[in-house]
Write a protein that binds this DNA or RNA. Sequence first.
DNA 1: CCATATTTGTAGCATATGCTACATTTTTCC
DNA 2: GGAAAAATGTAGCATATGCTACAAATATGG
Lengths: 145, 145
Amino acid sequence: MPSPRPSSRKRPPDSAVHQRRTREQHAQERAQDYVEAIADLIAEHGEARATDLAKSLGVTHVTVIRTVQRLQREGLVKTQPYRSIFLTDSGRRLAMQAKARHDTVIAFLEAIGVSPKVARADAEGIEHHVSRETLAAFERFVAAQ
Amino acid sequence: MPSPRPSSRKRPPDSAVHQRRTREQHAQERAQDYVEAIADLIAEHGEARATDLAKSLGVTHVTVIRTVQRLQREGLVKTQPYRSIFLTDSGRRLAMQAKARHDTVIAFLEAIGVSPKVARADAEGIEHHVSRETLAAFERFVAAQ
DNA sequence: CCATATTTGTAGCATATGCTACATTTTTCC
DNA sequence: GGAAAAATGTAGCATATGCTACAAATATGG
């Protein structure tokens, strides 16, 4: 007869599945933040430089350079030494998706009465953890206001 | 006259402040997940063992052992070699706070029409990024249903 | 009581991401 | 045109957190 202990289950408990999913979301999070920040800088200034990205993201230029190199390996950005940073088609798509999610979360939080300032701050983290279903519920709610 | 470039500002841009806050939240996230999982195991089985934590969290027992050692250094848990894992008063308080936030986020998502299954999955990540103000808005919304 | 199974612990590997220090390159300004 | 400032790049440090492999300790069952 099966013991109530999680260790006796064949199927991982939901908590493990959820935790793993959250970690996978974290693994994508940095890339999304970077491509979104790059897209913002390009839209606002025509170009994205490491020094500006560093300021937007609150890290040193070293961290930016390292991470941009990784994103280039992953095909999300394109850059050359001492040149601006550009988004690839993949990177642009990811940036648009991330921004859309970001904006939806902000709109939703404001719709339930959260101040714009706090909504923007909280959205930064929340945006990476909302599933399609939750996002759709947020959109329905905002549309119904 | 101030330049529009972020690099000319004396005050870091909001984006940098938000990003930094999100990273700080991530730094706390693992500790909260662990103490919450430990509290759950103790409540359900009377004790928390590394092997059970590993299954709950979806990682190997090695990762659990390492992280529990860190949490012990941080005063959140107490354990000895080959013994069960216990929460300190600090750890217990953190677990309760984390669980309360977790439960509020789930209740709220369900209240806006998200299925329980998806609500639980999304709450896992969202719970770490909601400020007090946002949580209060969630609670008001749930109470008004 | 002992063999086997399970759990725990260590070693050493990996990636990610943060930093300081310093060197090199580019840009700016006089 | 050249000095100074700013930006970029590398080296090497750090922590966190994931893993496999293997060894040691404990628990279980016959």
